[in-house]
């Protein structure tokens, strides 16, 4: 029953996005901004950007190798990953809020002619809300890294302990994905409450927990199904060494870009669904 309702939310979300592609504009802007960051990172080892970034790369990576092809891509990827958190908290969340407001307008059958504006006060609350959600996800990741370090120490090559070791190490990315969906479900209404109702972040978190009663498992099912769209990319990532050896560094870079695009699309799917559920609840 819960799973069925979760799929129903998924269907509504997909239909809404297809019928109202305008919801995707904020996400498209986020995508372009991410591409711009990648572009700068890509040109870092080349003139004239090398004059600014060269000393930084040397200082942080401790080797001139990373200023040259194809090792520069290691810097591109690792720095891009490191920038994802501040980018999400300070930039992406603003556009997620704009997308939530567009969903609200389309649900109310209003025309969307321009990008909704978000006041500075709302923005500050959004940043704090996003920091809480992302902070929890990273806290879990950090804790899980300890578990991986412990699992690596297991010497068994068969039996129960070996199975635990394999599950912890190989299952890491999938467990992270599921936990991310769980944390998003726990704080699902925080962003819509700040964006639509103008609640401050603490009130939004409090109301979120109240509103989640009865909906939590449906949202969890929906968010998990949406997150599962990322599994093909995880499969590619877990076989990185084999796949990379068959392609050029640029080809692998394209896969990374596609991964970032996929995450954005899943975000769009998730927040559209959450907003639809929230608005239905609000109306009822």
């Amino acid at each position: 029953m819960i799973l069925k309702r979760g799929f129903s939310v998924m269907r509504s979300s997909v239909v809404t996005l297809i019928q109202n592609p305008g919801i995707l504009y904020p996400y498209a802007i986020v995508g372009i901004l991410q591409l711009f960051i990648l572009e700068i990172l890509f040109f870092m080892p080349r003139y004239p950007l090398i004059q600014i970034f060269g000393p930084m790369i040397l200082a942080l990576k401790k080797s001139p190798f990373f200023l040259h092809y194809p090792f520069n891509f290691e810097v591109v990827n690792s720095w891009f990953q490191s920038l994802q958190v501040p980018f999400y908290v300070f930039v992406q969340i603003l556009f997620v809020a704009k997308a939530v407001l567009i969903v609200q307008k389309t649900e109310q059958r209003q025309a969307v002619e321009s990008m909704p504006k978000v006041a500075f006060g709302k923005y500050v609350n959004l940043v704090v809300g996003a920091a809480i959600i992302i902070g929890l996800m990273y806290a879990f990741n950090y804790g899980y890294s300890f578990l991986i370090r412990r699992a690596v120490q297991i010497r068994s090559t068969s039996g129960l302990y070996f199975l635990i070791k394999q599950a912890v190490i190989l299952g890491g990315p999938y467990i992270n994905l599921m936990v991310s969906a769980f944390i998003t479900a726990c704080f699902a209404y925080v962003i819509p409450l700040i964006a639509i109702e103008g609640d401050n972040v603490f009130k939004a978190v409090f109301r979120n927990f109240k509103l989640l009663k009865g909906d939590f498992f449906v949202l969890l099912a929906f968010l998990t199904v949406a997150a599962l769209c990322f599994v093909p990319f995880l499969l590619v990532k877990t076989n990185e060494i084999a796949i990379r050896s068959m392609m050029t560094p640029e080809g692998w870079q394209m896969i990374t870009i596609l991964g970032a695009g996929l995450i954005l699309l899943i975000d769009a799917l998730q927040y559209t669904g959450i907003t639809i559920v929230y608005l239905k609840k609000d109306r009822s």
């Binding site: 504009y25 802007i29 572009e39």
Partner: peptide, 20 residues
């Protein structure tokens, strides 16, 4: 909104061309 997107894509391409 479309215009904003087009301008941003144009900027992205322009930066790429200039830096190359």
């Amino acid at each position: 909104m479309k215009k904003t997107l087009l301008v941003l894509v144009g900027l992205l391409v322009a930066v790429y061309v200039v830096l190359t």
